[in-house]
Design a protein around this nucleic acid. Structure first.
Lengths: 348, 348
DNA sequence: GTTAGCACTCGATCGCATTGAGTGCTAAAC
DNA sequence: GTTTAGCACTCAATGCGATCGAGTGCTAAC
């Protein structure tokens, strides 16, 4: 069976209506609201075809039709019309990014807030992945006789700090010396590129502080790989409770318990790092069983052309894809630009 | 009407049962489960008295009784029995605090997790209030030709960092000079104690960098007063969804929307800073209308004897107060001790 | 190929009777 | 005077059947 123009019209009408009302759509409704110039009976025949083809389904015999995952997929790929933002919304975005920012985290947070506010779904923003970011400045600061603070500033604008034990007898001057050497050796390098040879070099220069260097490297490794990836900005969960599909608390509970596992979210978002444009994952296309009634819209943002992180929206499969895709697209661009402004000019 | 021993027994039975089952308690239930040696009829008479006195109420005529806020108050003040933690729970706490920590935030986070895990309600932890914390180390690090990162380490273990614009023409050496002077002047001082005189002193030494100093002070001010207070650790919200009082989504929504306003939470927690021991706020004693069916249990933790923050648990008024109070008490002590270990030895 | 007509399906809603937990009152027992 | 058994009464919750109506699929006419 071919998908002729009329079938497309009907499918579009069903999906549009269902997205708006969350109620199964019947043939009468379509005939009345979407003036396609055909009678309910004809629509019914077409709907039976569409159901055979797998694009729509029937919750029960005496109800209207709702889109299937396949239906949404077809909609997103072929039927969905671009939807521009209103001038007010554009203004809101511009204003939000125009404020002075002082920190990468702040940009991330604002993006997340806009994302959830504009879409009315849950927003997720993965901060710039810093595996490839470079050391800008490193320093050990003495705190007490047995403790020091390790501070590392990366060119991604992220600051790492960790408290560490230091052996007795280390003086502030020792730390100064170590800091200087660390800076000289590590500045401009990425964590990944710090190979054994380099560590050896540092060892040689600081042979008497072997212990402390080992600790520093360990902390850096740890701080740079484990922690930051888990800190995903998550906002607008409240919005999701407004969706009728989450009227019963059990659903809410399962979703919330998933969202609490940041590592899971992280994987979901990381899947699409680097992909061009906006990706839509519908229902089971999200590789997560308990989210099978949800969809995700994600996109990668970039710094100097290189993908560094992703932003995404999570909502029910009955999501206003046209709108969400537009918003995600806009915000990805804005976020990339904002990061560029904030961090772009650092390596003079 | 006096509150004799028998009335107390009955009130205790009602509250204990209601806390356990969330169902209104009838006279038969009490006679059966709590062997007080009196018949349901007698209990009914006493219950009528207790209702007159305002300690219990009836949802509707043909239902059992539930405790009123006054009833819970009486329970918490006079009837509640201390409840010790099991050895397993003690072990869990010990283990959790025994792990190496590298950061104040980590301690806070662990405390919050324990709090929600052990009580099965929502946990809130306010990080150490740093208005009174002292500068340990300050530094401006050049990032690009027009930007620098301001890093300030406080003796509370908190690290502030902000990106700032710098005027063109400032060299790395200039920043070095400024950093040195800032360190010399600010080390060991609190933000509050930095009066005009001190700022003037700094001005004099760095007369040619007036602009930059102004910006630094502004950023410090901003960073130290606004941001950190709002970053309250909040966890275990999921637990609250397990409570039968939150079976309908509307309730969940109003509560979640309140919990999203960190400044509100902050005020609620801040109310009790410095108070001795554990404070229990029942229903409308929390000064927040929408939380009138909730209770809070909060306590202040200390560093070197000085109150620096509070931890708290939020749950329905039908909360297991005995247990929660014990847990909060324990964790407050543990948190104080952990901070002491981490930060106590810093000002040699 | 399209559409009007019609029988049919089935969830949702409403009304009504039933149930049962719990009460308050009264009168008898202790 | 206090306690308790007995009893009538209340009222939310539960269950059940009737009804409703949105929507379908099929058939026959256009």
């Amino acid at each position: 069976m071919r998908m002729d123009a009329r079938k497309q019209d009907i499918l579009l009408a069903i999906i549009t209506d269902y997205i708006a009302t969350a109620e199964p759509v019947g043939s009468r409704t379509i005939a009345r609201k979407y003036r396609l110039g055909i009678s309910p009976a004809t629509i019914r025949n077409e709907m039976a075809d569409l159901e055979d083809m797998g694009y729509i389904e029937q919750p029960h015999t005496s109800a209207g039709r709702i889109p299937s995952e396949l239906g949404y997929r077809y909609y997103v790929d072929y039927l969905m019309k671009r939807q521009e933002l209103t001038p007010e919304e554009e203004g809101l975005i511009r204003e939000s990014y125009h404020q002075k920012v002082r920190d990468v985290g702040e940009v991330i947070q604002r993006t997340g807030q806009l994302l959830s506010q504009l879409t009315q779904y849950a927003a997720m923003v993965m901060p710039p992945k810093i595996g490839t970011s470079r050391f800008k400045y490193i320093r050990l600061v003495q705190l007490g006789s047995e403790q020091a603070m390790l501070v590392a500033i990366m060119d991604s604008g992220i600051v790492h700090h960790r408290i560490m034990e230091i052996p007795r007898g280390i003086t502030a001057e020792d730390l100064e010396t170590i800091s200087t050497v660390l800076n000289a050796k590590l500045q401009g390098r990425t964590m990944d590129s710090i190979k054994l040879t380099l560590v050896k070099e540092i060892y040689l220069e600081l042979i008497k502080h072997r212990k402390i260097i080992e600790m520093v490297m360990e902390l850096l490794q740890d701080s740079l790989t484990r922690l930051p990836e888990e800190r995903i900005y998550l906002g607008g969960i409240l919005n999701i409770l407004n969706q009728p599909e989450f009227r019963n608390v059990e659903k809410v509970k399962t979703l919330l318990s998933l969202l609490e596992q940041e590592s899971l979210l992280c994987n979901l978002l990381a899947d699409d790092v680097g992909r061009e444009g906006v990706t839509v994952r519908i229902g089971r296309e999200i590789r997560c069983r308990q989210m099978s009634n949800c969809s995700m819209v994600v996109a990668t943002y970039r710094l100097k052309g290189k993908p560094v992180g992703t932003i995404g929206v999570l909502g029910p499969t009955r999501m206003d894809y046209a709108r969400v895709v537009t918003v995600v697209e806009h915000l990805t661009k804005n976020l990339s630009r904002a990061l560029e402004n904030l961090l772009g000019g650092w390596d003079k």
